[in-house]
Nucleic acid binder design. Structure first.
Lengths: 145, 145
DNA sequence: TTAAATAAAGATTTAAAACTCTTTTATTTG
DNA sequence: CAAATAAAAGAGTTTTAAATCTTTATTTAA
């Protein structure tokens, strides 16, 4: 729920790459897929897209791979989500009504405003690089097993 | 996001039926579909399912239709969501990790715990019948146009 | 300057969700 | 009891998301 599968993989990949490339290393797509438990070609597609938007960096050829530079480390998870799933999670109506608004609210409008703002706050206050340390210390995980 | 389309329709339908049947009336499936802007046969399927679970009542034949009795008016939106989309929204990991837990948390675990509990609180404190008045007064809406 | 490594791109397949259509069953009323 | 009405049930179809496979382009290093 909340995010599409694509977006879940995207967030996990971005966090993974950030951690692994902190020291300047580059990470191959196979290693990324293994590191976050995702289908190789699927995450490749997602990263191509994030790469075009500057949320990850990459180089081809031997010793190539993905990495996240200092600038991108400061981008937020909200940017990643926006790039993949769009604005809807931040602004959409909980009951799927397109013209739900302050003046014509759905019955759950104000409740969902609170929830959405909580989501927005969480995602826009977390940068891509924020999790490096906790992952390094084994305090959090982005892999199933 | 958050809910499946099926679930959005389901919630809207249930709220609609609750309001319209408050006085004991029964509402036909066509009227429901029109009242919440949903495909007739699709919402019919959803209501069949909710009916089996006792979240709505129905009778066949002339003057038949759907309604929601006193008991079901007291059921919560959480029950409806659980019936259609399952538990996942209440317990699932924000990053889609199946074995994310307190002891093996994903990087966003605690943040999502807050968000989920907000969703849970909202849905389980709102009964199906809670919106009758606000809909009657034209203070909230469950239809696009 | 060629071979190997690697990401990018494109095309295709699979699976799940959303939606539609047809037939059946139950109920009511004349 | 027959006809009409309305939901239930079942069997599709369409659309979208997810996943896979194949080919191309770029880079490096021998």
């Amino acid at each position: 729920m909340v995010f599409s599968k694509t977006c879940e993989y995207g967030i996990r990949a971005v966090i993974f790459i950030a951690q692994k490339s902190e020291n300047g290393a580059k990470i191959g797509i196979k290693e990324i897929a293994a590191g976050i438990d995702s289908p190789v070609h699927f995450i490749a597609k997602i990263l191509q897209d994030l790469s075009k938007r500057g949320l990850v960096q990459s180089t081809k050829g031997p010793n190539g791979g993905f990495y996240i530079d200092k600038v991108a480390q400061k981008r937020t998870l909200a940017d990643v989500v926006r790039a993949i799933d769009g604005e809807n999670i931040f602004i959409g109506c909980g009951l799927g009504l397109k013209n739900c608004s302050e003046t014509k609210p759905c019955p759950l409008h104000s409740e969902f405003k609170l929830i959405r703002s909580e989501i927005q706050k969480t995602l826009s206050s977390a940068t891509i690089g924020d999790f490096n340390e906790s992952l390094n210390l084994g305090l959090s995980f982005i892999k199933e097993r």
